[in-house]
């Protein structure tokens, strides 16, 4: 499934954990178009992420489209976030207890589907 000969460990520069907990499976990512980022400093996978995320996608979707494990994408995105190259929208649910209003919003949304 994974493409290319490069092992994930190599792509991430030896790290296996992302540095931020805003980077979850369902966090949403978009490339910041105006960011002055030196693309030559980025590896191929990071450039691919910037190219893919011209509009909003979840981290899980980025991983699936690029054929990389989610854990690897999280690490790569951590760097892109530090460089100011991407915007990340963290998951809506942050509290231990799910707010009632959020469950109601989900329910209304589901009932409106056709």
């Amino acid at each position: 499934m994974r493409r290319g000969p490069v092992r994930p460990y190599v792509i991430t520069g030896g790290r296996s954990r992302a540095s931020r907990n805003v980077l979850e499976f369902e966090s949403l990512v978009r490339t910041l178009p105006g960011a002055a980022v030196d693309r030559t400093a980025l590896n191929r996978e990071q450039q691919a992420i910037l190219g893919l995320c011209r509009e909003l996608l979840s981290i899980a979707e980025v991983a699936a489209h690029l054929g990389l494990p989610i854990s690897v994408v999280k690490v790569l995105l951590g760097d892109l976030l530090d460089l100011g190259a991407v915007q990340v929208l963290p998951p809506v649910r942050q509290a231990e207890q799910v707010p009632l209003s959020l469950l109601e919003e989900v329910l209304v949304g589901l009932r409106q589907l056709r």
Binding site: L28, L56, L89, V92, L102
Partner: peptide
């Protein structure tokens, strides 16, 4: 582009 976040 109006989406502000996701749940799972």
């Amino acid at each position: 582009s109006t989406v502000q976040g996701a749940v799972k």
